[in-house]
């Protein structure tokens, strides 16, 4: 499954990092503590969070995250989008809250 497949299936907004839409996704990780994500997120995950700070992209790069989904309609900061484009890691958005989008993503990935 690619990031693009998830964008289409879950009706996500693509804010930035379009060059990374063909990245493979193997799982997901939901957390708002970047130190926790740095320690525990598996590579190839889609990371679901409410954090919009540019450090999100540094952690995503470090952990080989496939894409970031911002919840509750939150929008990335300008430098976060710039870094997302540089690293080709898409920043996506949904109006759903973390529990709902996590559930939908879990079902989608485990359907296969």
């Amino acid at each position: 499954m690619t990031v693009k497949d998830i964008v289409d299936a879950l009706n996500l907004k693509v804010y930035s990092g379009e060059a990374g839409l063909n990245k493979e996704v193997v799982g997901g990780y939901t957390s708002d503590l970047l130190s926790d994500v740095m320690g525990n997120a598996p590579a190839g995950s889609v990371w679901i969070t409410l954090q919009t700070h540019v450090n999100v992209m540094a952690v995503a790069t470090l952990k080989d995250i496939s894409a970031v989904i911002l919840v509750k309609g939150l929008e990335p900061e300008a430098n976060t989008m710039a870094q997302s484009n540089n690293e080709a890691i898409p920043v996506l958005g949904t109006n759903l809250q973390a529990f709902e989008i996590s559930g939908q993503l879990y079902n989608l990935i485990n359907k296969k």
Binding site: D32, L34, S35, M38, Q51, H53, V54, N55, A58, V59
Partner: peptide, 8 residues
């Protein structure tokens, strides 16, 4: 460091 992983 706990919230953003490191000092930006």
């Amino acid at each position: 460091t706990s919230q953003l992983g490191f000092v930006p």
